[in-house]
Design a protein around this nucleic acid. Structure first.
Lengths: 346, 346
DNA sequence: TTGTATGCGTTATCAC
DNA sequence: GTGATAACGCATACAA
């Protein structure tokens, strides 16, 4: 491969001048620079980022660790991150923790070995220690968390207010006349889900709905789990009239199965999800849900990262950013009787 | 950061011995190795892959370039690739070309700069020159294409037989009694789509169905495009009784819109897609489609890559692998009259 | 089995 | 504005 030595030899210059030209330094004659750039082009020069990274003691790569790459939310967030990061001249390394803390740890080790300039993370499902992020902090490598974050102010967190969102959507169900609203949540209570549970509970309380443990169903929030939950619900003594699932996938699995068994939605049971997956508008009736801007969240995470990267001497910021979210009300929670009530109320 | 110098100094050894120990070389005393490993652990050593890569003249990273990260197919394929690649001790860099050849080119440049050990690619939408892959070949960096490949035997291609698959599903539509089957394809005819068109045409021919240009509709295969196509179809003089879309997303968009306008599927129009997205089982009626193993295709691509990587002195292989596919017949193409015919035939 | 010495390609410091 | 030189951390050819 062509190196700066080759270019230097070709033009009778030193490698320093070539390097300066290539890096668009001010300390170089513009004409010389042009000669170098032309030659590098002609000779097919490709910069060696490994050498450059070694010399600079860090690569020009930003690492991303996410639980999984298989949701509209995640691919949207990645697209947002990539958009900002690439513009800034960085590359992206993406790794999946597969919802597994062990894998997350080895991902961080690999990122460390690759001397990433920064790390953007959405945490694996379990709540675990954050030890594996400490070496980054120790070596001045900024870490930004998004969506699934640690529940403390020690880190840079980009998220939505899950408590409020869950509160609002549960409250909506109650206002639609639901009196027995169950909540489907993750079996491993990551803070994200814990906050949603809390919001749900508060909404029940404020609407004078009594809560008992049977109303909280834990599963892995998959489509299959949703179907299983539906069967559970069908066999319940007193059947709920509202379901709030902590994600859309599970809500949709559940709905599909309920429909199969002749349950009418929202008449018999109103259903709400979380995330605003595209599938919400595919299932019939369309699914009420919480929507938030995945692409924007990715972009913001990346921007915060770049900010950290630029003033490396500044005290590392420690704060949480809450992104906006909105409740998207669709047919799956529009109970007809309520429609009438609302009509009368006008 | 701790380096092998630090470990060497700590133990009174040379860096070569430390390096050998860390790399599990045979030329080192097992006891010495253990001392080194213990010390490296205690001291919190993290190998510097930039230095190692510079020395070895290539990184331990495999690059992946794909059009977009937003489909079940792609995330499945990526998961498959990652599964194999990680086991082999490599890392993955993923980049999206966003269906744009220009971006694809800059992705390859960045991969080259990062001195990736190999490159796995699914091509951007357009047919373009393959010049940007030549430098890899020139420098002995293996390139494996999957799904969207160049239409020649010059490269390593992992794909399905799109001609046959399209033939089979079109033939199925014809056998269900459809006499005017339209085909929705991409407006930029990548080979993948060209082959599907060809299979479609052959099936028409073999079923004695006349073809005219109006039966071939070109669009970007998005959900929105599907809806637009539906409106086109509704305004056609002679309405088709069968639709074969080159992907599911578009088929589903189209179906949704047709249903809204009171078209009964499959009675009025039978619809078939391609890919077996999970949404095929969400839309009603469920969508007939072509299914193939995304995860397996990813794994195979990665395996072929590793094979190339291992015998670097072998002549680079040049061949195409065709993965199995299967036609998945669901309600969207089961015309009732045919059901009766089949019943009578028993 | 271990150590010495060198180079991978780049950038930064210093001198001119 | 340019050049000589050293150093980044590691791996290997060669010597011992």
């Amino acid at each position: 491969m062509v190196t700066i030595y080759d270019i230097a030899a070709e033009l009778g210059l030193s490698t320093s001048t070539v390097s300066r030209s290539l890096n668009n330094s001010n300390d170089v004659n513009k004409k010389t620079q042009k000669r170098v750039l032309d030659a590098s082009c002609k000779m097919g020069y490709t910069s060696n980022l490994l050498a450059s990274g070694l010399r600079n003691r860090r690569s020009n790569t930003i690492g991303v660790i996410i639980p999984r790459l298989n949701s509209a939310f995640m691919s949207g967030a990645i697209a947002g991150i990539e958009n900002i990061i690439n513009q800034a001249g960085y590359n992206l390394v993406i790794s999946q923790s597969l919802e597994n803390v062990g894998r997350e740890v080895s991902c961080t080790e690999s990122m460390l070995s690759n001397r990433v300039a920064g790390l953007i993370v959405s945490l694996a499902g379990d709540i675990g220690s954050s030890d594996h992020f400490e070496s980054f902090e120790k070596h001045g490598v900024p870490v930004v968390f998004f969506d699934r974050v640690y529940d403390n102010e020690k880190y840079l967190n980009i998220q939505i207010d899950n408590f409020k969102a869950a509160y609002t959507i549960t409250d909506h169900l109650a206002k639609q006349g639901c009196r027995e609203i169950i909540h489907i949540t993750a079996n491993r209570l990551h803070t994200v889900y814990q906050h949603r549970v809390n919001g749900y509970l508060r909404a029940l309380e404020n609407n004078g709905i009594a809560f008992n443990e049977k109303m909280l169903i834990k599963c892995d929030l998959s489509d299959a789990a949703g179907k299983t939950v539906a069967k559970q619900i069908l066999s319940m003594g007193s059947r709920p009239d509202g379901i709030f699932s902590a994600n859309d996938v599970c809500a949709i699995g559940c709905m599909t199965e309920l429909k199969k068994s002749g349950i009418s939605i929202p008449k018999d049971i109103a259903v709400a999800g979380f995330n605003d997956d595209p599938d919400c508008c595919l299932i019939e009736p369309n699914l009420t849900t919480i929507g938030y801007d995945a692409f924007g969240m990715g972009e913001l995470s990346a921007r915060v990262m770049l900010e950290q990267l630029s003033d490396s001497f500044a005290i590392p910021a420690r704060y949480s950013v809450f992104m906006p979210y909105h409740v998207i009300i669709r047919e799956s929670t529009k109970k007809e009787k309520i429609g009438l009530l609302q009509f009368n109320a006008i």
